[in-house]
Design a protein around this nucleic acid. Structure first.
Lengths: 223, 223
DNA sequence: ATATAAATAGGTATAAATATCTGTTTGTAA
DNA sequence: TTACAAACAGATATTTATACCTATTTATAT
């Protein structure tokens, strides 16, 4: 590796972003040439940037703008479309297995939990830039598990939740009753309850408490 | 300031801890001489440490050990008791106003949201060590608001939740029904519902979804 | 074109949560 | 020691959520 690696960081928490930057200066092969505190402006900023980063470290739980969600997953999808040459390394606080697989499927090149040590950050960036991916054993296992589950015929376990179900889930987390949700979505209360039942099945929850927990863990709603 | 400031860091996320350390090296007046990834061992480690830190940066949302909670607040109380000479600067992801006031009341000397810039970390540490406290305008306003609320007679708004209510809240977040909670706590279902109603009142929630959100925001349960 | 799987929409019956209540106990300030 | 506030325990009626169903539409793969 003779050339420096151009790194970009997309992370809303300023202190964490600065921390990553400070850590990366430990190795002089990294140049942090791009930064963003939100996902919305990244595509636009990249289009105007004099130099494109080789790799973007993207926080999974990016904040919404007003009512519009824009998580690391949204950004991943957009980047894979507009800037496929830029590698994407996801940073996340959780180690939610399903989410790992979802991200890799949608164009991310690697996944790091924020609990890892600096050495692993180094390895991950170098591995993604040189080999194209960085999959540690935990992520690999998660993907394999998910694959094997998909193969089983069974009922309808572990499927991603649908758009309509996500609507219901979000409103449920906002403390609306089924009746209120029905009004907002212009559907019958019975239908809302149907969606809720599917959500309980898919998320393995017993009641709304479980749904709220799931929604937070999976970045469907923010705190 | 002729002497270096001895800093300790209590933070479970290794990467964030390393990031803070790396940021602090920007100023040569800081020496990071103490680190811990959990709150439990801090008192013990400090007792054996050759040099005590002047100030401890403490993450508010420290992880529990098994079923035992030990947040930054617990640690703050313990430190104020055992090592009152060590200043405590709380680091938190949220800027929950009530929580700020609670921490300051219980012995913390300052409060920083993790969203601040490195310069503010510098200011906060220096201010705490030299002047004894670091209260930024947002925290100050939160405390004043809380004070003024306490003065009003009113009904029973904004009171801290009781031990029994916290029990019920935690179990509710774990998706147990009122009946199951009653069994676990050896009380009547009606009583559990009574506690739940008080929780709804105190937290300003409409249903369990709101309770779960409140519990997470206030570090009563962890994800 | 057609079989398959899953999303969507809906119905009915039961279980659970929530809104209002009444007491007793406990700690605390006047 | 008395008055007060709040935790704690409990009861009843009503609303809401959940379990268990069926039928239609939509997308996908064969």
């Amino acid at each position: 590796m003779n050339q420096k690696i151009n790194v970009g960081i997309v992370e809303d928490q300023l202190l964490f972003r600065e921390g990553i930057k400070a850590i990366l200066t430990n190795w002089d092969i990294f140049d942090v040439i791009f930064e963003s505190a939100d996902g919305f402006s990244v595509i636009e900023k990249l289009a105007q940037a004099p130099r494109l980063p080789d790799i973007l470290l993207v926080d999974l739980s990016l904040p919404p703008l007003g009512k519009t969600e824009y998580s690391g997953l949204h950004l991943t999808v957009a980047l894979a479309d507009k800037f496929p040459e830029i590698k994407i390394l996801i940073l996340s606080v959780h180690n939610d297995e399903n989410f790992m697989a979802e991200l890799i499927k949608n164009g991310a090149h690697g996944y790091l939990v924020k609990d890892c040590d600096p050495q692993e950050v180094y390895q991950a960036i170098v591995s993604v830039v040189e080999k194209g991916t960085y999959i540690n054993s935990r992520v690999l296992k998660a993907i394999q598990d998910r694959m094997s589950k998909k193969l089983k015929p069974g009922k309808q376990l572990m499927t991603g939740i649908s758009a309509r179900e996500e609507d219901v889930l979000k409103l449920t987390c906002q403390q609306f009753t089924a009746e209120e949700i029905a009004e907002k979505l212009f559907i019958s209360v019975k239908t809302v309850n149907g969606h809720r039942n599917n959500l309980l099945l898919k998320t393995g929850s017993r009641n709304v408490a479980g749904l709220v927990l799931f929604a937070i863990k999976n970045h469907i709603v923010e705190l």
